[in-house]
Design a protein around this nucleic acid. Structure first.
Lengths: 229, 229
DNA sequence: TGTACATCAGTGAACGCGCGTTCACTGATGTAC
DNA sequence: TGTACATCAGTGAACGCGCGTTCACTGATGTAC
């Protein structure tokens, strides 16, 4: 199970590479440069004021301490690295929400605690989450598409959570798919905005976001009972 | 009144300049290059796949058909031009919504028709609106701040609309400020996403966005009646 | 085990390019008389 | 009205820089025998 701590550098063993070009265990040539090295270098450079799309190939190579042209042995171009990062980010997000589900307590809904977990991870400096939030608007087309894909996965998970919840409460939901999408997009937008705010505002912003989500959940329940309201 | 058509080039007379440095009517030196020239050049370069933050000073100068260094006679740097554009965009947005209000009919709520007007303008290729949607996530700090300011104005207008509406219906609203903010952010996010979708999906996406907004409005009304629901 | 060889991951150097910014200029415009 | 002058908006040329990409190389690694 992928579990990404808030530290910048990811232990290579937990980072699945798309190509098995440098499996360290088996006999064969040892690759000194791995895809993970570049992934980690890119992550290290990301920050609240530094987007992936503003990174240059040479910058990443410099951070990874390799020659610029060595980059091409691992990725065709920056877009390919970006897509790899987005896919990692998707798994990170799934893990976060999975953990949040475990924390569910009687006095806090699944949705509410998921929002909390999400914002917590974001404020802790999770670069992958940051990437997922910010490149959606301005990344190159391949990266945008990769992010849309991850968001769709996430929306589908949330939709099923909502349906499960409704079944438990014996209530109907209005447009659960739209509900899940609205919540997802709102959380991402507000999360992104919250990162620009000073630290002392963070808990307030989390509360506000929770309130917004509550508005949507209440709406889908109310309309589920009476669609013509 | 500022009224910006869907054409790329804005007639100079309708574009209020921040500084009256080139008022053509009164006696004085005639400035061949105006701020509007640069504003228009930047707008002409923007598009679904081209963000303001990716424009270079030289590109804008080239489009405006002036020497690169002449740029500095009008703006300190690209950020300053960006902020000017954002402020123009804010006025454009206000105008759009104002017009939408006039179109209000008995079988369509103010909110609903505003959402429609917004999306329509966006799909018509309004570059200013595009700017407002997209630079919020990745613009430089000054531009982000300028966008936040415009969004706040807009949220406040929306909040007052909602309150007026509630008063008319003799109902209470739960957290009208959060409601206005949620709707604003959602509309902006989904609008941005809709621009990447093929044309044949646009009316569906507008409908979906309207549904999402309806969820929120229903939520604030339901919680207004019974805050502990 | 030891040796000669093939492979290919990683590199140093170089390329042409567009960038932001500077400088001293020039020539059109408006002013003073 | 005509002329000499001051102003300053706009420019051409140049700068140093970081960029993405290419090429031929080299030297460590693993293989064959």
């Amino acid at each position: 199970m992928l579990n990404i701590p808030q530290a910048v550098t990811l232990p290579p063993s937990t980072l699945p590479t798309a190509l098995p070009m440098s499996t360290p265990g088996r006999p064969g040539r040892k690759a000194v440069i791995s895809r993970d090295d570049l992934v980690n270098a890119a992550l290290a450079l990301l920050g609240p004021t530094r987007s992936f799309s503003s990174l240059s190939l040479r910058e990443v190579a410099r951070e990874a301490d390799i020659a610029p042209n060595s980059f091409y042995r691992q990725f065709r171009d920056m877009d390919e690295l970006g897509v790899a990062l987005v896919e990692l980010a998707g798994r990170s997000l799934t893990t976060i929400i999975l953990e949040a589900r475990h924390r569910v307590s009687p006095h806090m809904s699944v949705v509410r605690s998921s929002v909390g977990a999400f914002m917590e991870q974001l404020f802790a400096g999770d670069k992958l989450l940051l990437l997922l939030l910010r490149e959606g608007a301005v990344g190159s087309p391949p990266i945008k598409r990769a992010i849309e894909r991850q968001l769709s996965f996430f929306e589908e998970e949330l939709r099923q959570d909502l349906l499960r919840l409704a079944q438990l409460k014996q209530t109907a939901l209005f447009e659960p798919a739209m509900t899940a999408r609205a919540i997802t997009r709102l959380v991402f937008t507000m999360g992104s905005q919250a990162l620009d705010a000073p630290k002392e505002d963070q808990s307030r912003l989390t509360e506000e976001l929770a309130t917004m989500v509550r508005l949507i959940v209440t709406g889908t329940q109310a309309l589920g009972e009476n669609p013509d309201a």
